[in-house]
Write a protein that binds this DNA or RNA. Structure first.
Length: 831
RNA sequence: GCGGGUAUGGCGGAAUUGGCAGACGCGCCAGACUUAGGAUCUGGUGGAGAGAUCCGUGCAGGUUCAACUCCUGUUACCCGCACCA
């Protein structure tokens, strides 16, 4: 049994809290390091392994930064609004507010059991009126600056959650949360104009210290595309149809236009003969779910409208079709179809027997004539543009169109505006009043918060629950005083989390969301840690909101998270994500009770790569194994035995000790000293990179070296042993904070190890008098060779060639070359 | 189809600038101790072979005195996006 255990954890957690040793000191803001993990969703159950993995291991990182003199700002809070609490309420009848507050209370206690360095004075919870008051304030600022607007549009609707969803919340045509196929509905909804920032969001991405994958995902999601608008005048109506293309060079190959069924001009231009077919087609596509649409990609369908447009350069009459392979929400909702050089247009033209001319010839003709050629090439059948390259023609064709007033170069984005209103209860109310006389009237800022009422019938039926609460809805217009109604929708929870990192450092400010002078010093977040699944939602929204607030003058920076790190995920033994429904969860509680928080922390840190995660190991019976944890537990016991041994040799209190001068160390001590400094150097390099496993390995090696030195030495150098032991505990402190603190106290210290400075290493200690060389013949290791540190390359070469064990093999050939790598190896090349 | 990533012993995982592959731990094997335990300690442990040796980082090539590492091609798996004009 180890004497360290959960009781030790409690003892130190209590004392740290009393002494406020992790309190952030604002006067040291110049040394601040804002390190943040994505905040947690309050859940009624006990903390799961993921919490320990996310928050326990980032704590090791933060603790090392503290010891290196950084003023670490490390807050924790709760992303407390959202559907799970509401769905739980519908099942159980427990009000979302009650269940959420209870969950938060549980988590506040349990998060402390990890032994992390949170400064709880900066806590926040998004469902508190003192927080969402400022979420509503944010909405109003966006509204006043034209970045929040209401529009009637086809939007994603989840029939199960009974609410609209943002584009980002539709995955594979289904609801991100419940996977129900999403349908389209025409509704009037609130949007944030994130598209105004599309260009900056994509161009400033490169400079961020973020994982390449995440940057690529955002870039892809924003979908910047350079091309041109090309207008095709209508043959029988005034006006024109505007198309977006990236291939203006293929304009002479455009043989028809295709509009999305939702395109606003469709019914205007459709001729009476085709009206019935067209309306039928529109109706059938409208009732298709996103999933059906994706499933039907292979069979292209469409109908002719009977209308014609004029080719802008040839004046030829070309037919106008509608088809659902053209998306209403991208570009102009209309394309010029070039079946000779586009796969989709080709498939469509083949089915409906439309002509498929060639206007680009490939430099190396390897595409058969019965397939579209989608690459660049030389223009043919393109009048005066013949002979130009695709690259040239993309410019010259657009220039000609521009002279005619029928085209211009442009950039489009895939990114759509962010739909933020939700027809659900448990969220921040939209702070807008609908007045019959004045229209949309923002709630005056001094009237915030618009409080979410408690007594509401929140069972979802497609209506906003708040609409059924007259006490909430009925108000007066702030402008004209007439009776008016509040907006019944609540805000997407991603609005709450798009600015929480700005609130933490000034969380009790009641006059403003924050004090800009203070926040501009505290932010941006220096290191943000969280899962990669937020790449195109939270991380994108937070960047947008930060940039918008900067342009309104509330911030002087435009990127919220300078540096981003994604942890991996610990999976169940089946390799699947842990979940109650799969029954593959592993509870941390038992391990913590039995071995203590630090054994679990050390195990998680040691047994997995932090960036990869991976499945929990299995034993011979395919059950979750705790053999690895017992290995860590043995290490803890070995460490305690060593401390006991040291205290036998050197009674407490052990002096803090100064490093013994290198020159006065005997050879065996030099070896131990080498291991110490090697360990300090390695851990100082690896811990900042979240390479916890190698850091712990170094401490294990150091402990082994310590006890071996003591066992093998007839007269151990006791002050030196005491000093090395204390350095080892300092190295351990970030990883096993309770254990290190306890052992530190046993050595007689009366101040916390967590206020000790991080050890430094001396390069001189890493230089040994003798170096072992590997001696290779033709690249294969054949012998070892000890050489003095200052031996010349020539000495080493001669010593290697003179090795008796190599004589026979060397005699078989002639030595062509000898490569000496100082300090490492010798390679003898024989032929 | 596009983008990003991964592949190393029985297992988790190491390997700094191209320089002795497999650190550290688990498991396994052998031994010690014993108040007989699912405890602890010590030693060994990539594979093949009696052995000298040979073979080994998904696969096939290449560059190099030297390749897990760099280059070309290829396979499998994972993640994200996907009729985006």
């Amino acid at each position: 049994m180890s004497r360290y255990g959960v009781a030790t954890d409690r003892k130190w957690q209590k004392r740290w809290e009393e002494e406020q040793i992790y309190a952030f000191r604002p006067e040291r803001v110049s040394e601040k390091l804002y390190c943040l993990e994505m905040f947690s969703y309050p859940s009624a159950a006990n903390l799961h392994l993921g919490h320990w993995w996310n928050y326990g291991l980032t704590d090791c990182w933060a603790r090392m930064q503290r010891m290196q003199g950084k003023e670490v700002f490390r807050p924790m809070g709760f992303d407390a609004f959202g559907l799970p609490a509401e769905n739980y309420a519908i099942r159980t009848g427990i009000h979302p507010r009650d269940s959420t507050l209870a969950s938060i209370a549980t988590m506040q206690v349990q998060l402390r059991q990890i032994g992390a360095t949170y400064d709880w004075r900066y806590e926040l919870s998004t469902c508190d009126a003192s927080y969402y008051r400022w979420t509503q304030w944010l909405f109003l600022q966006l509204y006043k600056n034209g970045l929040a607007y209401r529009k009637d549009a086809p939007v994603n609707w989840c029939p199960s959650c009974q609410t609209v969803l943002a584009n980002e919340q539709v995955h594979d045509g289904g609801c991100e949360r419940c996977h129900t196929p999403v349908t389209k509905r025409n509704l009037t909804q609130w949007f944030f104009k994130i598209t105004d920032y599309a260009e900056e969001l994509v161009t400033t991405l490169d400079a961020l210290d973020w994982p390449e994958k995440t940057k690529a995902m955002q870039k892809n999601w924003i979908g910047r595309s350079e091309g041109a608008f090309i207008d095709f005048p209508l043959a029988d109506h005034p006006g024109f149809i505007r198309n977006f293309t990236t291939r203006a060079d293929t304009l002479y190959g455009a043989t028809y236009l295709v509009l999305a069924p939702e395109h606003p001009l469709v019914l205007t231009i459709t001729t009476p003969t085709y009206r019935e077919a067209v309306t039928q087609y529109i109706a059938s596509t409208a009732q298709q779910s996103e999933l059906d649409r994706v499933a039907n990609v292979k069979e292209k369908t469409g109908v002719f409208t009977g209308a014609y447009a004029l080719h802008p350069l040839t004046q030829e009459k070309i037919p106008i079709w509608i088809a659902d392979y053209v998306l209403a929400t991208y570009g102009t909702g209309s394309v010029m179809a070039v079946p000779g050089h586009d796969i989709r247009d080709f498939e469509f033209a083949t089915i409906y027997h439309l002509p498929i001319p060639r206007v680009i010839s490939a430099a190396h003709p390897d595409t058969p004539d019965n397939l579209p050629y989608i690459g660049d090439g030389i223009l043919i059948n393109s009048a005066s543009f013949n002979g130009e390259s695709s690259e040239e023609a993309k410019i010259t064709v657009v220039a000609r169109l521009q002279e005619l007033g029928l085209g211009q170069a442009t950039i489009t984005y895939r990114l759509r505006d962010w739909l933020v209103s939700r027809q659900r209860y448990w969220g921040a109310p939209v702070p807008i009043i609908h007045c019959p006389h004045c229209g949309l009237v923002p709630v005056p800022e001094e009237d915030l918060p618009v409080e979410l009422p408690y007594d509401v019938q929140f069972t979802p039926d497609g209506q906003s629950p708040l609409a059924k609460s007259p006490a909430f809805m009925e108000t007066t217009c702030p402008t004209c005083g007439a009776a008016a109604l509040r907006d019944p929708d609540t805000l997407d929870t991603f609005v709450d989390s798009s600015w929480y990192f700005l609130r933490y450092p000034d969380n009790r400010n009641q006059q403003a969301a924050w004090d800009p002078a203070w926040i501009n010093q505290m932010l941006p977040v220096d290191r943000y840690v969280g899962g990669p699944e937020h790449a195109c939602m939270h991380l994108l929204y937070a960047r947008f909101i930060t940039k918008a607030l900067r342009d309104m003058g509330y911030l002087n920076f435009g990127e919220p998270f300078t540096s981003l790190f994604h942890q991996g995920i610990i999976l169940g033994v089946d390799g699947q994500r842990m979940s109650k429904s799969r029954g593959n969860t592993i509870a941390p509680d038992g391990y913590v009770e039995r071995y203590g928080a630090d054994v679990l922390r050390l195990y998680l840190a040691f047994a997995f790569s932090y960036s990869d995660g991976g499945p929990w190991p299995v034993d011979a019976d395919n059950k979750p194994s705790d053999e690895g944890i017992r290995g860590i537990y043995r290490f803890v016991q070995r460490l305690e035995r060593w401390i006991d041994r040291l205290l036998e040799l050197v009674p407490a209190p052990i002096p803090a000790g100064t490093p013994t001068p290198l020159a006065s160390l005997r050879p065996a001590e030099r070896e131990l000293n080498f291991t110490l400094h090697q360990g300090i150097k390695t851990i100082s390099r690896d811990l900042p990179l979240y390479q916890f496993n190698t850091s712990i390995a170094q401490i294990m090696i150091l402990l082994t070296s310590l006890s071996r030195y003591e066992q093998e030495s007839s007269a151990p150098n006791l002050p030196f042993l005491a000093q090395v032991t204390q350095e080892m505990l300092r190295l351990l402190a970030p990883l096993a904070p309770h254990l290190a603190e306890e052992l530190w106290e046993e050595l007689g210290h009366t101040t916390s190890i967590h206020n000790e400075a991080w050890p430094t290493w001396e390069e001189a200690a890493l230089v040994l008098d003798e170096v072992e060389y590997g001696v290779q013949i033709n690249g294969r290791i054949r012998a070892k060779l000890m050489q003095p540190r200052d031996a010349s390359q020539e000495d080493i070469r001669l010593a290697a060639l003179a090795l008796p064990s190599l004589a026979a093999e060397l005699a078989e050939g002639t030595v062509a070359k000898v490569v000496v790598v100082p300090g490492r190896l010798v390679n003898i090349v024989i032929t």
